[in-house]
Amino acid sequence: MCLVAIAWKTHPRWRLLMAGNRDEWHARPTAALACWTDSGIRAGRDLQSGGTWMGLDGRGRAAVVTNVRDPFATTIGPSRGGLPTGFLETAAGAPAHVEALAAEANAFAPFNLLVADAGACVYLGNHPRVERRAIAPGVHGMSNGGFDVAWPKTRMLCSVMEKWIESGHGDFDPLWNALADGRIAPDAELPDTGIGLEKERMLSAAFIRGPTYGTRASTIIAVDHEGKGWIHERRFGPEGVFLGETRLRNDDAPMPDVGAT
C-alpha cells in the first residue's frame, strides 16, 4: 500500500474511513480480497510472504501499512505485510498492540502502520526512528514518506476526502476517482527520496500505470460507530487494466455482487 487517506471520527456516519492504493510489481503473486478462513480477516493476500496491506476484521478493527521509501535503508527483516495481520488476528486494543510492537519495530524494513479499533486510531513508524502516536480526529494521509507528510498525491487524496465529507453525499465515486488519478505532479512539488527525478515523477501519481510495476489494487474501508462496515477492492493489471472487484461486509451479511474475481 503506497497511498492512503484516513478519516477518523470526523464523518457523521462512518467512525473510520480508509481509501488507498497498493502499488507493487505485477509479477508478485496476490490473492483477491476475501474472508480468510484461518482468521476471519477481510483482506487481499500477498501470496509471496503471506501478509496483507490493508484489512478489516469482524469487530470493525482495521489496519493499513505502507513502505517508507529510502533506497539506502535495509530491506531485510520480517515481511511488513505481517504488521496489519498481526493486529487483526489478535484481541489487543490498538494502543496496547502498538506499544508492544514498538519494541521490535526496528526488525522490519521501513514502514508506516496505522491500526484502529472502536476507541483509538494509532500510528507506528520506524524510519528514520521509531515513532508512535495516537491520531486525533480528522483526515490524515500516508504515502511512502512519514505520517501526514504532504506529498502531492497525499494532499490531493486528503483534500478530496475532506470535501467529500463536507458535502454530505453518500456516493463514494469522488474517492474512487481520486484513487484513479494518474496525473504526474509538477517537478517543483516532488519529494527527493534518492531515486532520481524520472522515478519521482512516475511515482508521484496516485494511480501508477506501468507494464511491470503499478497500482495493483484500490481499496476503501468504511466502519460505522457500531463497528459494522465493509471493505471494497478494485484490482488492476499491467498498464492499469481493470481485472475485477470484490465487496465484503464485516458482519457476513451479503452485499451486491460486483464480480468477485
Rank of each mutant, 00 (worst) to 15 (best):
H140N: 00
A109H: 07
A205Y: 10
I165A: 07
N126V: 02
A188Y: 05
F108E: 07
A136N: 14
L101N: 02
G196N: 05
L157T: 06
P137M: 10
I221Q: 06
A120W: 04
R155S: 06
I221N: 03
A188I: 12
F236S: 06
Y123L: 01
G194I: 08
E104Y: 06
I165R: 09
E200F: 10
A136H: 14
G237H: 08
A205H: 02
T215Y: 00
E198F: 00
K228I: 12
N177I: 05
Y213S: 12
P137I: 11
L203I: 01
W164E: 02
T193M: 10
V139Q: 01
E104M: 14
M202D: 14
G146H: 01
F108V: 09
F147P: 01
E233D: 13
G182R: 15
A103F: 12
H140A: 09
S143H: 06
W230K: 12
A188N: 12
E189H: 03
K163Q: 15
V160Y: 05
A222M: 03
K163C: 11
G125C: 02
A217Y: 00
A103E: 13
H225Q: 14
A136Q: 15
P191C: 04
G229D: 12
L175T: 06
I135F: 11
A116Y: 12
T154E: 01
K163W: 07
N106G: 14
D117T: 04
G145C: 10
I184A: 05
E233M: 11
F242Q: 00
E239Y: 08
W230D: 13
V149G: 08
L197W: 05
P191Y: 08
Y213E: 11
H232R: 14
P238A: 10
E166G: 06
L157Y: 13
A105K: 09
G196V: 00
A222R: 13
E239L: 07
S143I: 08
N126M: 07
D192P: 01
V139T: 01
M161A: 05
